[in-house]
Simulated assay, not measured.
Amino acid sequence: MTAILPRTLIGTSTPEKRTRVRNRKAWLGVLAWVIALVAFAPIAWMILTSFHSETTAATNPPSLFAPWTFEGWASFFGAETGVSPLPYFINSAVTSLGSTLIVLILATPAAYALSIRPVKKWSDVMFFFLTTKMLPMVAGLLPIYLIAKQLGLLDTTTILILVYTSMNIPIAVWMMRSFLQEIPAEILEAAEIDGAGFFFKFVKIIIPLASPGLAATALICFIFSWNELLFANALTSVSAATAPVFLTSFITSRGLFLAKVCAASFAVSLPVLIAGFAAQDKLVQGLSLGSVK
């Protein structure tokens, strides 16, 4: 004879419990929207300020309903100085994309050796990668400058690509290792039984399965390279100057420059925002896959 169990014991939720769950989800949704709006408020204010004149942009408190003008954007595109921002953006794209590609080529096999086929004392290797991020970047500025000067690499995109590659490899190895550890070992064992070699497994199995992690790692390395200013400002002057260096040229000791800086800041941030929006699905999937927090 089948016993009749209470509804609370067989896992059926009561209407009151379902209502509490819906209310909790609704409040969490409202909280998420509030956090998103607070996080977006500085960006929205920067965009709004870029369409104000320098006089109204510098008022305190700032004027929200001041007349709009394109003076700041005209200055950014060289209306006053005649200097186009295009070469600076090209330099940033070349250095960021070039260094990111090299980082992925070097970090993925290294992460494979530290996860799927771990080398001896792999923990010491990971600790070494971690310690390289503990050194302040300014501490290595003078040696790198002297080396670049001796090699004739000052004011070239080559030196920036080398510097950005060395800066991003540690974080890329750490991220890729966490992603590759999530690949089931049974898949690789089955491929080995079928006679697959290392190159086939790496290209046809590991890379496709780790593509969300590759996308997340590439995006983070691209953002770090695009936003870097210290080495770009010290190692370049005219030919290889990047977009952040061009941005700092609007800050002067005379006159007002807030609207110009806001226009330039949004323009410089726009490629990163577009890249993040385009790769948001892969980024969330990759970060969730590797449990990177």
Rank of each mutant, 00 (worst) to 15 (best):
T2Y: 06
I10W: 11
G11T: 12
T12G: 10
T14D: 09
E16S: 13
K17W: 09
R18H: 13
V21L: 15
V30A: 14
W33A: 14
V34H: 00
A39R: 08
P42W: 00
P42E: 08
I43G: 00
M46C: 15
S53I: 08
E54F: 07
T56E: 13
A57W: 00
A57L: 01
A57K: 03
P62T: 09
L64T: 02
L64F: 11
F65V: 07
A66T: 06
W68V: 01
E80R: 13
P85R: 08
P85G: 03
P85Q: 03
L86G: 07
S92F: 12
S92M: 10
T95C: 02
L97N: 01
L97F: 12
V103D: 05
V103H: 07
V103L: 03
A107T: 02
T108Y: 02
T108F: 09
S115E: 07
R117A: 11
P118T: 09
K121S: 14
S123A: 15
S123I: 15
D124L: 14
F127W: 14
L130M: 11
L130S: 15
M134G: 09
L142K: 03
P143R: 12
L146Q: 12
A148E: 02
G152E: 09
L153P: 01
L154K: 06
T157N: 15
T158W: 06
I159W: 00
I159D: 04
L160S: 05
V163M: 03
T165F: 06
N168Q: 13
P170I: 02
V173D: 07
M176T: 04
R177A: 14
F179M: 11
L180M: 15
Q181H: 04
E182G: 07
I183W: 15
L188Q: 11
E189S: 12
A191H: 11
E192V: 02
I193L: 09
D194Y: 10
G195L: 03
F200C: 06
I207K: 00
P208T: 13
P208Q: 10
A210K: 04
S211N: 08
G213C: 06
L214F: 00
A215W: 05
T217S: 03
I220V: 13
I220K: 00
C221M: 04
C221G: 03
F222N: 08
W226V: 05
L229I: 07
L230Q: 03
A232I: 05
A241E: 00
P244Y: 04
F246A: 10
F246S: 04
T248G: 01
T248F: 02
F250W: 01
I251W: 08
F257G: 12
A259G: 03
V261I: 15
F266T: 04
F266M: 14
P271G: 05
V272F: 01
I274N: 06
K282L: 14
L289E: 10
V292C: 00
V292Y: 02
